[in-house]
Computed example of a mutant assay.
Amino acid sequence: MSYDFPDDLLHAQRDLDQATADLHALYATLPISAEPTEAYRDDRETGYWHARERPASPGWTEEQKRQVADARARRLELTSAVVTHVFWATLGGPDAVKARSALKHATEAAAEGPEST
């Protein structure tokens, strides 16, 4: 089934996809822990059945914490715009679920461009 999504909903979903990618990219640049932590290594000798190890983390700076908070707030704002869009009131039950999935795929296809088909 094909859905005639409003332009503002498509734009909101594309922006949400980009905001999610931006947040993941930001996380990839940050230390492993938001708060300073010491390194640790655990194994069977220290009472753990599965070996695990983490390097020390200096924690996030105040600027990094602000960047994450801003990125998460933007993602939340866009998620709300997509989920509460008036378009969804025109559908019910399984059709709403199918349309939501179709919206995600519609923006993926648009991002890939016509040469990918």
Rank of each mutant, 00 (worst) to 15 (best):
W60S: 01
S101H: 13
G47N: 04
P58R: 14
V97G: 02
E115S: 15
A81I: 02
L9M: 11
S101W: 13
L10S: 09
D4T: 09
L23T: 00
Y40E: 08
A56C: 10
H85L: 06
G113W: 12
P6C: 07
T29W: 04
R52G: 05
K65P: 00
H50I: 12
H24T: 11
A110C: 01
V68A: 07
D8Q: 12
D15W: 03
E108T: 13
R54V: 04
I32K: 09
L78D: 02
A102I: 05
R41F: 14
I32W: 13
G92D: 12
A106I: 08
A106N: 07
H11K: 15
R54Y: 08
A111D: 11
Y40S: 10
E62R: 15
G93F: 14
L78T: 01
T37F: 02
R44N: 04
A109R: 13
A73Q: 12
A69T: 13
H11P: 01
H50F: 08
D95E: 15
L76W: 06
D7S: 11
L10T: 12
E38V: 06
D7K: 08
H50E: 09
F87R: 01
T79F: 01
A81F: 01
T107H: 02
A28N: 10
A106Y: 06
G93S: 12
E63T: 12
P114Q: 09
M1Q: 05
A25F: 02
A56M: 12
R100K: 11
A25D: 15
D4L: 13
Q67C: 06
A21C: 02
A34M: 14
D42N: 07
H11T: 15
E62A: 15
S116G: 00
A99K: 00
T84Q: 12
L23P: 01
P6L: 07
L9A: 05
G47R: 02
P31I: 10
A28V: 08
V86H: 15
A81D: 00
L26V: 04
L30D: 01
R72T: 14
A71E: 02
G59R: 01
P94I: 09
A110V: 04
D8K: 14
T84K: 12
E108Q: 11
V83Y: 03
H105P: 00
G47H: 02
E38R: 08
R66N: 10
L16W: 00
R44G: 04
R74H: 07
A71S: 14
P31M: 13
Y27L: 07
R41G: 03
R100N: 10
R44W: 04
A96E: 05
T46R: 13
R41S: 14
V97P: 01
P36L: 10
E35Y: 10
T37D: 05
F5K: 05
